[in-house]
Every structure is written in structure tokens, then in C-alpha cells.
């Protein structure tokens, strides 16, 4: 009888363990969009922004300190940048060239592996794209982000402080969307979501 009792309990617990909820079933169930903004920043007083035409997804620094930069393929990068520009236009912003003294800068980066991105964020923006004497990109306290995140930073390059670094006025992280499956629509939807939950960017 004791054996019967013991086996009954084992059988039922095993059945329960077998039907334990499995959680996410599809890869897009894991997509997360995070946004944050500086509450003291007055977006309404600004109008123009500049954005580069490439998206960095990797980098390597050799022993001499030279940085090799890897860019996202142009087809996907153009779609992503177009989606960002579409949302910015919809919110009333005017895109200008970087040499037209924009009020704000929009900067995008993709992370393919878990990384501490910040240290090199500065280098590639400063050396490769905006070599105009401004000390930036903005100081972003990024810790590690996992595979396939698109990071977008919106910052005022004219802002000065004693460290010659500026905090981002807005940051968006679309986590889990840059995957080997490469469903670009997931990325575009995630960008739309970033703006949808950031209506304070709207200036029109």
C-alpha cells in the first residue's frame, strides 16, 4: 500500500510538471521596447535634427587603438532609418544635414551580442561621422544589452557641461529584434512602438 501511495504521488507530480506552462512560443513574444526621457528637457522649443545614413552594428579595436567599424547592410539600414525619419516627420520634426547646425542629433546603433557599448559609442560617432569638434555622442550609461538590440539616442549636441558630455534627452532600446531570422517588419514595428509610447517628442 505504501508503494502504491508513493507511486501515485510521483505520477501526479510528474503529470503536473509535464504540463507546466511553457511561456513564450514565438520569437516576437520576446520583443521589448524601452524608452526613457529627460523630464526637464523641453522638446517643444526645438525643431530640427540630423541623423547619419549608416547604422553601426559592431566594432573592433586593435592594439594600436585603431577602430574597425562594422555597419548594418544598407538595405536594412535604409528601411530602419526611413522608419525613424517617418515618425520624426509625423511628430513635426524637420530633418537637416549635420552641417546645418541641427537642434538635435538622432543616433542609432545595433548590438549583435551582449556588450558594454558605451566606451566605443563615443569613438565611432566622433571620428567617423561627426568630426566637427563637438565632444559627443551623449554620455549614455548603457550597461549590457543582449543579442539583437537596436539603440536609438536623441540628444542635444549644443548642451555643455563641465565634462563636455551630455545626457540623452531620449533613449529607445528595442530589445530582441535584430536576430538571424531578420524579419525587418518586426524592427519597423518596434520603431513605431518607440514613438507611440513617447508622445512627448511630438512638437506639432
Amino acid at each position: 500500500m505504501r508503494i502504491l501511495r508513493f507511486l501515485s504521488i510521483v505520477a501526479i507530480v510528474s503529470m503536473l510538471a509535464g504540463c507546466y506552462p511553457k511561456g513564450p512560443e514565438y520569437v516576437d513574444d520576446l520583443d521589448v521596447t524601452f524608452t526613457s526621457y529627460d523630464e526637464s528637457f523641453n522638446f517643444q522649443a526645438l525643431k530640427t535634427y540630423a541623423i547619419p545614413d549608416k547604422i553601426v552594428i559592431g566594432f573592433e579595436v586593435d592594439k594600436t587603438g585603431d577602430t574597425t567599424i562594422e555597419y548594418m547592410n544598407a538595405i536594412d539600414a535604409n528601411k530602419i532609418l526611413s522608419q525613424v525619419n517617418f515618425n520624426m516627420t509625423d511628430y513635426g520634426w524637420t530633418k537637416v544635414d549635420v552641417d546645418q547646425n541641427p537642434d538635435m542629433l538622432m543616433m542609432l546603433g545595433g548590438i549583435s551580442t551582449t556588450n558594454y557599448f558605451y566606451d566605443y559609442w563615443y569613438n565611432w560617432w566622433y571620428d567617423d561621422w561627426y568630426n566637427w569638434g563637438w565632444y559627443y555622442p551623449p554620455y549614455v550609461s548603457l550597461s549590457s544589452y543582449t543579442t539583437g538590440s537596436l539603440i536609438t539616442v536623441f540628444a542635444d549636441p549644443n548642451e555643455n557641461n563641465p565634462l563636455n558630455k551630455v545626457d540623452p534627452a531620449w533613449i529607445s532600446i528595442n530589445n530582441g529584434i535584430l536576430t538571424q531570422g531578420n524579419d525587418i517588419n518586426r524592427v519597423l514595428n518596434a520603431i513605431d512602438q518607440s514613438f507611440e509610447q513617447s508622445e512627448y517628442l511630438k512638437i506639432n
Binding site: P21, L30, F34, S36
Partner: peptide, 17 residues
């Protein structure tokens, strides 16, 4: 859904156990 706390918002699907 989107969950907002102070100046931060996060969107996604929650799985609750």
C-alpha cells in the same frame, strides 16, 4: 502592453507565473 513608470516606458508581452 505598455507599462509606464515616471519617465520610463516599457512595452512587451508579460508572462506571469
Amino acid at each position: 502592453a505598455t507599462y509606464t513608470y515616471e519617465n520610463k516606458s516599457i512595452s512587451g508581452k508579460q508572462f506571469r507565473y
